[in-house]
Amino acid sequence: MAQTIMTVDDSPSMRMLLRAALGKMGYTIIEAEDGIDAMEKLSNNRPDLLITDINMPRMDGFGLIENVRQDDSWRNMPILVLTTETSDEKKQRARIAGATGWIVKPFSPDKLAAAIRRVLH
């Protein structure tokens, strides 16, 4: 069965770009437009991986990662941050919140695929 990835980004264009790239790799995709939307969709979906942006309205990527990690049932789900941000301070914040990895945009589909393969088993 195809593995499922939840993508979280407030930009419809970025969600489309991710849908195209991940769809080609054969993954099933669930989309959310911010942290709140993602938390709601996680209550009735079981994705194998979460890919999230950082800068989003209502609940940003940091808030989302913290909330997800508070729930024991999501302890083992890998979380990749995909963002234009590059600062070490923000990376550390994501690491402490419980992120699995950090990818700086713009991404090439090949690099994204390699990062996903590394965290999905």
């Binding site: 990895g101 700086v104 590394r118």
Partner: peptide, 10 residues
């Protein structure tokens, strides 16, 4: 040269 495309695993 900058950080675009960088992947960091924690």
């Amino acid at each position: 040269p900058d950080k675009a495309g960088d992947v960091t695993f924690f």
